[in-house]
């Protein structure tokens, strides 16, 4: 039976957290989460780690493996060179709870501020028709499993004190899913520009690189939103044109499909 060395950062606050070495008996096909479970069952029953599905579907087991944000249940031990120790530490962008568990409640607060889906009030059932091509775009965004790895990796949240000003890639993805919904009547552009701080994102794509659901966050969600914001607020030609036509607020809601 093979052996793998895992260094796990353990503790209840960042200052006193320590790297602890564990030697794990491994068998074929094991993922990092299996190794941690083995540690729990054999060496450290109180090792704290969050997980649920163990199938990369729930987004609970986010942490940083060898410094890179990943899902523990999807990261195979065999992805790393044999014989070298693997480091596992909690996500750095969020306050530590204990061991590998961080306090991600901030994300839920951000989420609660987003205006919910707003369908036309009285659309009859027959109006709820749309084609696959209308929704393929937003189905990509709805694949999000809320692992918050993108929030963890985004330098705007990680390196700058911007938690109150920038919603982060996960929530830009959510807003994109609402804004591009063929039946949605809501208007979140003002929110995006100010409260959500879309301008903080400098499209450097780290979020896209780590997303376990392979959502092309920057290209498909954030940049199109930036373009929509530009339509309303930064495009001198459009602004002039709107002035000329006398329309004041441009957020024209799409007519319900018939």
């Amino acid at each position: 039976m093979a052996e793998t060395i895992l260094w796990v950062l353990r503790g209840s606050d960042r200052e006193s957290a320590r790297w602890i070495e564990y030697r794990v008996e491994t068998e074929e096909g094991m993922v990092v989460l299996d190794a941690l479970h083995w540690i729990q069952a054999n060496l450290a029953p109180d090792l704290a780690v969050r997980w649920n599905c163990k199938a990369a579907k729930c987004g609970s087991c986010s942490a940083e493996v060898n410094g890179r944000p990943r899902l523990l249940c999807k990261t195979r031990l065999s992805d790393f060179p044999e014989g070298e120790a693997i480091t596992v530490e909690p996500m750095r962008a969020f306050p530590l709870v204990r061991d590998l568990v961080t306090d991600v409640s901030w994300n839920y607060q951000v989420n609660a501020r987003i205006a919910p889906f707003a369908p036309p009030a009285d659309a009859p059932e027959e109006a709820w028709r749309w084609q696959q091509e209308d929704i393929e775009r937003i189905q990509e965004f709805r694949r999000c499993i809320e692992c918050f790895l993108c929030q963890d990796v985004c330098h705007v949240l990680r390196n700058h004190e911007t938690e109150n000003e920038f919603a982060g890639p996960r929530y830009l993805v959510r807003v994109a899913g609402l804004e591009m919904h063929p039946m949605d009547q809501g208007d979140r552009l003002a929110y995006l520009r100010t409260d959500a701080g879309a301008g903080y994102c400098n499209i450097t794509k780290c979020c896209t690189e780590v997303c376990p659901e392979h959502i092309r966050i920057t290209d498909n969600a954030i940049i199109p939103l930036k373009e929509r914001i530009a339509d309303r607020y930064y495009d001198p030609i459009r602004i002039a044109w709107r002035k000329l036509r006398g329309g004041s607020e441009p957020g024209e809601p799409p007519a319900p499909a018939s």
């Binding site: 209840s12 729990q40 029953p45 109180d46 704290a48 204990r98």
Partner: peptide, 12 residues
Amino acid sequence: RVDGPRAFNPGW
């Protein structure tokens, strides 16, 4: 019996 603190203790 379980070891460790009460916080996020899977044994508990």
